[in-house]
């Protein structure tokens, strides 16, 4: 069994502060301060998020629930695994290209829009030279960012959900040491 955070109290705190800023300042890559050991197919950055936020009171759906990864997560967090994406507080997407449609995850209800899924998606890279621009709360004017390794229709699916705001799904993308937050309120700008 691999270890988790070496200093659970302080590693979680520092990781959380980056996640908070990532969610507050969407589409801006931030470096996670601690990368814990992680069995395949879980990336260390994704593991840092799961260790920071999940415990016996959270439900988690794993796209690729492989034995060693499951044992590791359950031992270190005690999280409750669920079989249906719809039931998950958190979903770990280790292979975005074959992920379920976004509509498979909980978007909350109008009285409680917070009862919605948070997705942790392991992507291949972030590039600032792309054509995709974002706007919304947390973004001063606009942010330019390309996210590599997403399903071809990811942005169409996301745009299709936008009219349901404040219902929606919040995403943490990870690549290498970096994390990018994309709350439901962030809009993809045309062109």
């Amino acid at each position: 069994m691999l270890a988790a955070f070496a200093h659970p109290v302080f590693d979680s705190q520092r990781s959380f502060r980056e996640l908070l800023q990532a969610m507050a300042r969407p589409a801006m890559p931030r470096a996670l301060p601690v990368l814990p050991p992680a069995p395949a197919p879980i990336a260390p950055a994704a593991m840092a998020i799961l260790l920071t936020l999940c415990d016996a009171t959270t439900t988690v759906w794993l796209q690729q629930p492989e034995g060693e990864a499951v044992r590791h997560l359950q031992f270190h967090t005690g999280l409750k695994r669920v079989d249906k994406p719809q039931d998950a507080d958190f979903a770990l997407i280790t292979d975005p290209v074959s992920m379920p449609p976004l509509d498979a995850f909980a978007r909350g209800d109008l009285r409680y829009p917070d009862r919605s899924a948070s997705l942790i998606m392991q992507v291949s890279a972030f590039r600032a030279d792309g054509q995709t621009r974002f706007a919304g709360p947390g973004i001063r004017t606009s942010e330019t960012l390309a996210i590599d390794g997403l399903p071809g229709d990811f942005w169409q699916q996301r745009t299709a959900q936008a009219p349901q705001l404040p219902l929606g799904i919040d995403v943490y993308f990870v690549a290498g040491q970096q994390v990018v937050g994309l709350p439901r309120t962030t809009r993809l700008l045309e062109g």
Partner: peptide, 19 residues
């Protein structure tokens, strides 16, 4: 305790996501 902090942190992240 750390369980309580995690609960608060999850709630804060949702709060930021739904201004």
């Amino acid at each position: 305790d750390e369980d309580t902090k995690r609960m608060l942190r999850r709630s804060l992240l949702k709060a930021v996501a739904i201004p």
